[in-house]
Write a protein that binds this DNA or RNA. Structure first.
Lengths: 198, 198
DNA sequence: AAAGGTTGCTAACATACGTTAGTTAATTAT
DNA sequence: ATAATTAACTAACGTATGTTAGCAACCTTT
């Protein structure tokens, strides 16, 4: 009888399922990925998954909110630091970039598939998202007031930054990648360079 | 008996269906949007759609290749112009931006949902996409050689540009938009500003 | 070794989906 | 006015999907 392997200790079977789900949802999209696909990836029959999870949407829910919470904590932390606006922006961007490099399946799924959440989680997620962007924009606006940053529309700048970073997905799948460090530095050069005055 | 309205002349009934499909696929995603949803949006029964189209995937196919062709023609045109690399980049970006502003449902769907195409169209689309990015990167590399552009990794720059532009989708749906012109100029300022030497 | 809990299996359900067949209504051409 | 064509309808088929029920095998604790 097949069993779900949790080779690395401290991993629950649910963790294994959630991780495989991230990979599958990233590859096929949430709707197109079936529970039978997931079961096969996990090495078990579809019905057996339900010993560990409540529903398919719960998987998406877990993925989305895990990611969202990580970003929320990071922006809390950065806002509180006594550094310049440009430094805050760079720190936040670097966090986004490394998150996308290291946990890209989860981050990608959270970013692209949250539409398939169901209320009340959907509204909740959308609110968090809006709030996060507002806080990011506020940092940029502070930078503009202090003349560190060009006179641009802050919400537009946030859109550009956040979407630019999802481009890392293509890097991840490309065959001849530059190194992760080089990627990060290139992105910072272009993005922060585009904001900075002088 | 309900009929599909093609109020503006020169619109075939299929055109009406394709347009509504773009809107629906954008809103729900290709897989989550059903033919019955589409039929309702068009004002007709699901089976009736098949008097005008071959299949659901044909709709996606039409959307994706219409968009891809427009971009391919534009890059043909721009490559041939006797202008500097930076000017070429700016022209191409402005084209992307206005396409995204004016036909955003189609462009968005083409960008996000092409994964659900079926071979041979899938491979075909992927090839076109790769080729387009290579040509874009080549323009940037020419700019680097002529010292117009910072010494960055060109493929990374392409990723950033293209993905940044999909952020316009959020602008489109936001309630308090800045004007389309202001959006375009802001994006150019940040993106081209991030590339330019000095 | 027995008992209890956990995790797997098979079978099946209800539902939703894309699509086809066959038919009728509406429009266009003769 | 009649015939031919186009475009709609109803009904249904086959398949895939998320999920549940009931039972068997495994592991852990005593």
């Amino acid at each position: 009888m097949a069993r779900i392997k949790t080779d690395d200790k401290n991993l629950s079977r649910k963790d294994v399922i959630v991780t495989k789900a991230a990979s599958l949802f990233r590859e096929k999209g949430f709707k197109a990925a079936s529970m039978r696909d997931l079961a096969e990836a996990v090495g078990v029959e579809a019905a057996s998954l339900y010993n560990h999870i409540k529903s398919k949407t719960e998987l998406l829910h877990d993925l989305c909110f895990n990611v969202a919470n990580r970003f929320m904590h990071k922006i809390d932390e950065i806002e509180a630091e006594p550094i310049s606006a440009i430094e805050k922006i760079e720190k936040l961007l670097r966090f986004h970039i490394t998150e996308m490099i290291e946990h890209y399946e989860e981050v990608y799924v959270s970013d692209r598939e949250w539409k398939h959440l169901e209320d009340p989680y959907l509204s909740n997620f959308q609110n968090q998202r809006r709030l996060y962007r507002k806080r990011f924009a506020a940092i940029i606006e502070a930078g503009i007031r202090q003349k560190e940053v060009k006179e641009i529309d802050a919400p537009t700048a946030v859109l550009i930054m956040l979407h630019a970073i999802t481009g890392i997905e293509s890097w991840h799948r490309s065959t001849q990648k530059i190194s992760a460090e080089a990627l990060e530095d290139n992105m910072i050069t272009i993005l922060v360079g585009g904001l900075t005055n002088r």
